[in-house]
Write a protein that binds this DNA or RNA. Structure first.
Lengths: 261, 261
DNA sequence: CCGTTTGGTTCCATTATTTGAAACTTAGTC
DNA sequence: GACTAAGTTTCAAATAATGGAACCAAACGG
């Protein structure tokens, strides 16, 4: 349900179609797409054709189904390496994981949603793409709230408009008002908690990753379960986590600079 | 240098710009992009604006640089999971890696280039995105030749047109004629070798992954070094590799089917 | 300090592309 | 062999992209 925002121009529509295919999670037939888009047949057809021709989609000629194309994987490789904090943060995440022994999440904001870009699992070794690349709600996760708390007014407003405020657990902050109050508390405190707001039994302590100019780059969290530890215990890691966040931010900023010439 | 093919329509241009940003590997300023594209200022500007607005690019307001956006990472997650053979092939790669004890590559064809979508390293555990997503030449790698050997005439022709035939080593097949002869030999033999054609000391034995209808889905290779083993020894794995390739193909085909209703 | 260059953004009449209803072509049913 | 569903193509009208040029701002130089 719920169409995309007013897609600007042709490329907006094309990308919209891409998303539509992505959402399905498996190869889709033309008619399936036609059913849920409100683009007219011919328009959708040409859009798909263009995307296919461009390698963003792949048409399985046997089955007549469309799937996301490999060009996307290649682009993503670059996106991962360059846009996200992941490559910079990697060694720091390792350090934080080693010192805390807990699960670590690195997230960035994507259109009002939390996008996990890297993760260290206490138990298992890294399971990169299986885990990274996932999205989650912003209003009820530690990393989400940490980022919202330091977002610019405009960004916050946009993000708020996109929240669905579904009540996942008894603790979920399910109205904008409750959330705004919480964000205020987070700013004062300097870090955000997730008090089983998204999943029962899952708690975390998260800090934002901020540039010197105060812009939000992402967020970092130490996550655990109520079975294993308490919020108070997690809060003990807040100092270290903030420190690590600062170092990531510093490196991210210096990395963006050096384009000699 | 070498412009993209005739980009069809606006989305083609937009994607072209995306690629341009990706190629840089680090955030780029407007003027850098302007310098190497032959789009007029205003056009490029609007293209960048649209892409940014769509979340495909990210504008760093401090520095005024563009980087690939997080939306791309999210899309890639889906692409990885759905379009590529990687998720299906994963357990099979594990099996092949365990049995051979060598490095395993899973690749697909992307516009005449080889795109590595997964890898098992003899030594280290998987390092997903860091390795996967890389591209390489088709004419001088085992997986590339395996895919070309079973490509349709049209696909082969297109791919050939995009090869640069740079002489990487003494063994590199550096003309279309040599390559075509080799492809013929590969078809007869049933598998492709890389005889140090790309990197000195690196050899491999690769097989195509084919649907029942004979369409190329990708290729699978067992790679090693001349220091460790010989081509003849690698060829001993050809049977097993072919078997695994067949199983991957079978699962890929049945996976694409089940859209009930 | 003020003239100049460099880098980025906006205007707007022209042009080219996209649009989508409808017609058409397969391929599959009954 | 008529009927239906799914995909593809057409074409005039509508719309969106184009790009030369003007504009703005900040950094530079004398």
């Amino acid at each position: 349900m719920g169409a995309e925002g007013h897609a600007d121009g042709t490329v907006g529509k094309a990308l919209d179609v891409l998303d539509m295919v992505a959402r399905h999670g498996r190869p889709v037939r033309f008619s399936d797409l036609l059913a849920q888009s409100d683009y007219p047949k011919a328009t959708l057809y040409r859009l798909l054709q263009t995307l296919t021709h461009q390698g963003m989609l792949m048409l399985d000629p046997d089955q007549g189904t469309y799937a996301l194309g490999v060009r996307l994987v290649r682009l993503a490789h670059a996106a991962w390496a360059q846009s996200s904090l992941a490559p910079i943060a990697r060694p720091y995440l390792d350090e934080l994981a080693a010192k805390t022994g807990e699960t670590i999440h690195l997230a960035q904001m994507d259109l009002g949603q939390v996008l996990y870009v890297d993760k260290r699992n206490a138990a298992r070794p890294v399971e990169m793409f299986a885990q990274a690349g996932k999205v989650g709600p912003a209003y009820c996760t530690g990393v989400g709230k940490a980022m919202l708390a330091w977002a610019t007014p405009e960004a916050l407003e946009q993000a708020l408009a996109r929240q669905s405020f579904h009540r996942h657990t008894d603790h979920t902050l399910d109205t904008p008002e409750k959330l705004l109050a919480e964000l205020q508390a987070i700013r004062v405190r300097g870090h955000a908690f997730d008090r089983e707001e998204h999943e029962r039994g899952i708690i975390c302590c998260a800090v934002p990753i901020l540039t010197r100019s105060g812009r939000v780059l992402g967020a970092l969290s130490v996550t655990s379960t109520t079975a294993r530890t308490t919020l108070a215990a997690l809060e003990d890691w807040a100092g270290l986590t903030k420190d690590i966040a600062a170092r990531i931010a510093a490196e991210a900023e210096s990395w963006r600079f050096p384009e000699q010439n």
